[in-house]
Design a binder for these strands. Sequence first.
RNA 1: GUGGGUAUAGCUCAGCCGGUUAGAGCGUCAGGUUGUGGCCCUGAAGGCCGAGGGUUCGAGUCCCUCUACUCACCCCA
Length: 422
Amino acid sequence: MARLYQNPKGTKDVLPEEQQYWKHIETTMQRVAELYGYEKLTLPIFEETALFRRGVGEGTDIVEKEMYTFSDKGGSSMTLRPEFTAGVVRAYLQNGMASRTRPVKLWSAGPVFRYERPQAGRYRQFTQFNVEAIGELDPALDFEIMSAAWHLYDALGFRKLNFQINSIGCPLCRPGYLRKLKDYYRGRLSGICDDCRTRIEKNPLRLLDCKNASCRPVIETAPSIGDCLCAECGDHFRTLRGYLDSLSRPYTVNPRLVRGLDYYTKTVFEVWAEGIGAQNAVCGGGRYDGLIELLGGPPTPAVGFAAGIERMVLTLQAHEISVPPIPSPKVYFVCLDDTARAEAVSLISRVRLAGVEAVMGFGGRSLKAQLREADRKGIPLAVILGSDEIRSQKAQVKHMQSGTQDMVPLSELPAFLTARTG
RNA sequence: GUGGGUAUAGCUCAGCCGGUUAGAGCGUCAGGUUGUGGCCCUGAAGGCCGAGGGUUCGAGUCCCUCUACUCACCCCA
């Protein structure tokens, strides 16, 4: 067994036993997207590398160390998508969607790839549900996006979720804040961890969510971005909060919430789940008013979020939320000899066409073995076909739970089974 | 990239202070008299004890190296 092939590190097989969770999430997210008027956009899984370098940001961890980049046979540098937004914006610009009525509201779902050390809830290939609304600065749109996320988790049956929101300003007001923050930290170099000393220059916003205990008191008294927002950003955030309050959507303003991607402006938010380990963000998103222009389009505001499906599955399981079962066989055709099997092959085909999930026994297995299989798979009805039944043209239909049996003419079997399994 | 933990059957795990043919439960398959599942009983299949080296008369057990898995950091879904 040491010589068997293994799945690549950080990937995961989703076995049949887990599929009900995936199906529940997939149908729910599609329904929520429809309820909010978002249209589906299907994108390639890889794009040219430059799109992500530019769109995600050169200084980000994703670009610096996490991308699956390769040269194709023509010598072009390609990258498996590490997130959706850059690809969505590329498709929006390339297909002339900027001339559609705004906002253009799009959703996508599928695998994304980041080369990281795996741990609980973190994979190198994982699956995201992605929602974007492009072309509108109205805070009501921020609210709609957050509302869609809230609606999704509510419909899935999640409880005990934590909505965290913040505003990280815009190119007008953020530089001034960062200057204040850096000055504050430069005066306290001795009290902070090594990581934070490098963050001061490299990624100052990240100083605010350092988990190191020694940095905590420094963070507590650090200048807050909320006090430094420009008039536009401040108004935007206040209006958004007004919408959230009016609908009684529980949330926490977290002035230390920042995000790892360069393109965010104004609103950022995350949704945290309990009980699934350290990687507890099931959803992250925000506004990115500068990205479309950065990727060669006209100045265009936009807002969106991405939710991680594997983490949603973990949350459903950790919170013991029951999900709809996947339809399973309702009828098992027991075949006792070759003549019976020939009859079963034709009968089962008619039964399936009538919409009844049905399976049959293969090979020369005993009656006992076939009934045991039907029992263990929880199949409620067994149709027994042997030489007696062929001779009389009547099958025995056994109700597995009660053990009672009916004699049913073969010609009436499809109708009988349809009625009993409806 | 940096730490910690763990590797014995498909799964969950025993295996003492180093001692002879490697264990259990669950699962799978089969049987328990002619064609009837569940409970019970019996049996079978399934392991180079993660890999390589070392110590020893003798290693699943002790030591070293490697690999894989796992949790956490960085960061993120």
